[in-house]
């Protein structure tokens, strides 16, 4: 009988040390406010980003994704991990006004960046028009993909790229909803789009 040896995953540390691209990117990112990062230990990276309007200095393991930092360190758990591979869109947030999948965004690259999450979308207790529209049109069921859907929709509306239903469907297709609330999502984006003009 054959003997098989398992050594499937390369660790991300190995990957970082072997991959010139990633390692260089980490090393050359301009760290705005790096002077405030005296605590930086060997192998760690100091980053100061603005999260939902609050300046947030952090010392991070270079492997840490924006998603994991938001969830595990800043306790902003509204942003969800659906796949960790950029395949589902549940982790969508805004970086400098653009939608990104936070699972494929390393925090070490975000010095000086403005990050907005679902927690930063509402105006105090007043729901953002998209949040209200998702409720009005039942644009979700289990609610797990919803923060990502809403953040994606906000960027799509802001871009002005989605006017017709078909354009909205296309632009929102990076955000999977397994409950399949898609028709409600399209209706919600249409309603909010008119209110946000």
């Amino acid at each position: 009988m054959p003997v098989v040896t398992q050594s499937e995953g390369m660790s991300r540390r190995e990957l970082l040390s072997r991959s010139g691209v990633v390692a260089t990117a980490v090393a050359t990112v301009p760290l705005i406010g790096a002077d405030a990062l005296a605590e930086e230990a060997p192998g760690e990276v100091g980053v100061r980003m603005t999260v939902n309007g609050t300046v947030t200095p952090l010392t991070v393991d270079p492997r840490e994704t924006l998603l994991d930092v938001l969830r595990e360190r800043l306790r902003l758990t509204g942003t969800k991990k659906g796949c960790d591979r950029g395949q589902c869109g549940a982790c969508t947030v805004h970086v400098d006004g653009e939608r990104v999948v936070s699972c494929l965004t390393l925090v070490a690259t975000l010095g000086g960046a403005r990050v907005t999450t679902i927690e930063g979308l509402a105006d105090g207790d007043r729901l953002h028009p998209l949040q209200q529209a998702f409720i009005d049109h039942d644009g979700f069921q289990c609610g797990f993909c919803t923060p990502g859907q809403i953040m994606s929709a906000a960027a799509v509306i802001e871009d002005g790229r989605a006017r017709t239903d078909d354009q909205i469907r296309e632009q929102m297709s990076g955000n999977i909803c397994r409950c399949s609330a898609y028709p409600g999502i399209v209706a919600a984006v249409q309603q909010a789009r008119k209110e946000m003009r």
Binding site: R71, L76, T77, G78, T79, K80, K81, T117, I118, E119, L121, A122, L127, L130, Q131, Q132, F134, I135, F140, G143, F144, T146, P147, I150
Partner: peptide
């Protein structure tokens, strides 16, 4: 709805 659209509904993780 309000908890889910604001990201405040706590799931297991």
């Amino acid at each position: 709805g309000p908890l889910k659209v604001t990201g405040r509904a706590p799931y297991a993780a």
